[in-house]
Amino acid sequence: MSSEAAQRFQRLLDRVAASIRFEIYAVGGAPVAWRSIRKGTLLATNVPDDFRTRYIENREYERDPLIVVLRAASRPVRTADIRAAAEAEPALMPNFVAIGEALGTAVVAVPLRFRGRLGGGVIFRRREPEFTDAEVEYLELVAPALHLAALDLPAAAPTNDLTARERECLAWTSVGKTAWEIGSILGISEHTAVAHLNAAVRKLGAASRAHAVAEALRRGLIE
Rank of each mutant, 00 (worst) to 15 (best):
R125S: 07
R125G: 01
R125T: 10
R125A: 12
R126D: 08
R127P: 00
R127W: 08
E128C: 04
P129K: 10
E130D: 14
E130C: 02
T132A: 09
A134Q: 15
E135M: 10
E135Q: 06
V136L: 01
V136N: 02
V136K: 05
E137S: 14
Y138D: 06
L139D: 08
L139T: 07
L139A: 07
E140C: 04
E140R: 14
E140Q: 05
E140D: 11
V142G: 07
V142S: 05
A143H: 10
A143F: 13
L146V: 05
L146Q: 00
H147Y: 05
L148F: 04
A149G: 08
L151S: 10
L151H: 11
L153R: 11
P154A: 11
P154K: 07
P154W: 09
A155I: 04
A155M: 09
A156E: 14
A157Y: 01
A157L: 00
P158W: 10
P158Y: 15
T159M: 05
T159N: 07
N160Y: 05
D161E: 15
D161M: 13
D161A: 15
L162T: 09
T163G: 07
T163R: 03
A164R: 12
A164E: 15
A164M: 09
R165C: 00
E166W: 07
E168W: 04
E168T: 05
E168L: 07
E168A: 15
C169W: 00
C169K: 00
L170G: 11
L170N: 14
L170M: 12
A171M: 12
A171V: 06
A171Q: 09
W172P: 01
W172E: 14
S174E: 08
S174R: 13
S174T: 08
S174Y: 12
V175H: 13
G176W: 08
G176M: 13
K177P: 06
T178N: 07
A179P: 03
E181R: 04
G183M: 01
G183A: 03
S184Y: 02
S184D: 14
I185V: 11
I185M: 07
I185A: 09
L186C: 04
G187D: 01
I188A: 08
I188S: 04
S189D: 01
S189E: 07
E190Q: 15
H191C: 02
H191S: 06
H191A: 13
A193C: 09
A193L: 02
A193T: 12
A193H: 04
A195K: 11
H196N: 15
L197F: 03
L197A: 02
L197T: 11
N198A: 11
N198P: 03
V201F: 00
R202Y: 10
K203N: 11
K203M: 06
K203C: 11
K203D: 02
L204M: 06
L204R: 11
L204K: 05
G205T: 09
G205K: 00
A206L: 00
A207S: 14
A207F: 09
R209C: 00
A210L: 14
H211W: 06
H211R: 10
A212S: 08
A212R: 00
A212I: 01
V213N: 08
V213W: 01
A214I: 00
E215N: 03
L217E: 13
L217T: 10
